[in-house]
């Protein structure tokens, strides 16, 4: 019944319906508008938010600190590419998730870590942390932390060896502040580590963890671009203050400020716990998740055998995410119970 002669008016205007002819009409269901975000945009935004921390790491530990970071990125991206070829799926490297995993892993390695082992960590992070679960979105555990847990279990010496770190200025810290606190001399500990040092950096630790200030800048980037929500970060920080404070009131531990500024607490709160895939997606669940990580971390630091505890806390809470999601499901609009 298409009768071109029946066109009332506009046909004579030349262009008319040429562009919208039956041939190229798309039959797509609504909505026909989009917010404009893509997964890869999110990934690259987080990558940018990590740059201050990377910069601080290089500033304090020297340019050689880049070596393990690059190693981890190479391992992660390479593994992603290979897995994509094996599965004959579309190339998922450009979406940036593997790059981000590698960068995250690199930033939680000691500055003098062997680059070959960092590559292995990257491969494990993407391969065991993500690919075996079915790829991006289906993984249960934070891939970067899976990589780190593997490295920690495989090369405990290398992963806790801070002595090779070429510290810039006069810093002598060979152990991390937390390590000094747990195993060192209290006097040495009190003398060396000041709050301003913890805030600015220049203390022993992983490449990305050293400067709290750089992490806070990254957090600001994530919050302003609305890539991450404050809920998990906020509840984890508040949880850290509350639990650490409670224990220090009971005479156990150094108190909230030290706990939050030292080790991986901030880095974990800002970049690890907020990973979409492995954190709850209900509002209430996110509060529970953050507070749970804080509680576990403080418990491990106070009563466990390890000086640090953020990594295992996040991994443990990752495992609890399906349960948290189920329990904290939002009430459907208008439902009474």
């Amino acid at each position: 019944m298409a009768d071109e002669s029946s066109v009332v008016d506009g046909a004579k205007k030349g262009v008319a319906l040429k562009a919208v002819s039956e041939g190229n009409l798309e039959l797509v269901t609504s909505p026909h508008s989009h917010f404009g975000w893509t997964t890869s945009r999110i990934m690259w935004t987080v990558t940018i938010a990590l740059l201050p921390s990377l910069g601080a790491g290089i500033f304090y530990f020297g340019p050689l600190a880049l070596v393990p970071v690059i190693g981890a990125i190479v391992g992660a991206v390479g593994c992603e590419w290979v897995v994509g070829r094996i599965n004959k799926k579309a190339d998922t490297v450009p979406d940036g998730s593997a790059f981000l995993t590698g960068l995250l892993l690199g930033l939680i390695l000691p500055p003098g870590f062997s680059p070959l082992h960092a590559v292995l960590g990257g491969v494990v992070a993407v391969g065991l942390g993500k690919a075996v679960f079915g790829g991006l979105g289906d993984n249960i555990f934070n891939p970067a932390l899976v990589g780190r847990a593997f490295l920690q279990a495989s090369f405990p010496a290398g992963m806790t060896d801070w002595s090779t770190a070429v510290t810039r200025v006069d810093a002598v810290s060979q152990a991390t502040p937390l390590g000094l606190f747990k195993f060192g001399e209290p006097s040495q500990f009190l003398g060396d580590i000041t709050t301003s040092k913890l805030l600015l950096g220049n203390v022993g630790g992983c490449i990305g963890e050293t400067s709290s200030l750089a992490i806070i800048v990254g957090a600001a980037i994530l919050l302003v671009t609305r890539v991450a929500h404050w809920r998990i970060m906020g509840s984890m920080l508040l949880g850290g203050v509350v639990f650490s404070g409670a224990f220090s009131l009971l005479g156990v531990g150094p108190g909230p400020l030290f706990d939050i500024l030292s080790g991986g607490f901030l880095f974990g709160a800002v970049f690890m716990a907020t990973d979409y895939v492995t954190s709850p997606n209900t509002t209430r669940g996110q509060y529970v998740f953050g507070a749970g990580i804080a509680l576990l971390t403080i418990l491990i630091r106070r009563f466990g055998g390890l000086p640090e505890g953020v990594m295992y806390s996040i991994l443990l809470m990752n495992a609890a995410v399906p349960l948290i999601n189920r329990v904290t499901r939002p009430r459907i609009f208008g439902a009474t119970s």
Binding site: S114, H117, L120, F150, A153, S154, F155, P156, G158
Partner: peptide, 8 residues
């Protein structure tokens, strides 16, 4: 360097 995790 042995991957200690493997014998864990």
């Amino acid at each position: 360097e042995p991957w200690i995790v493997m014998i864990l």
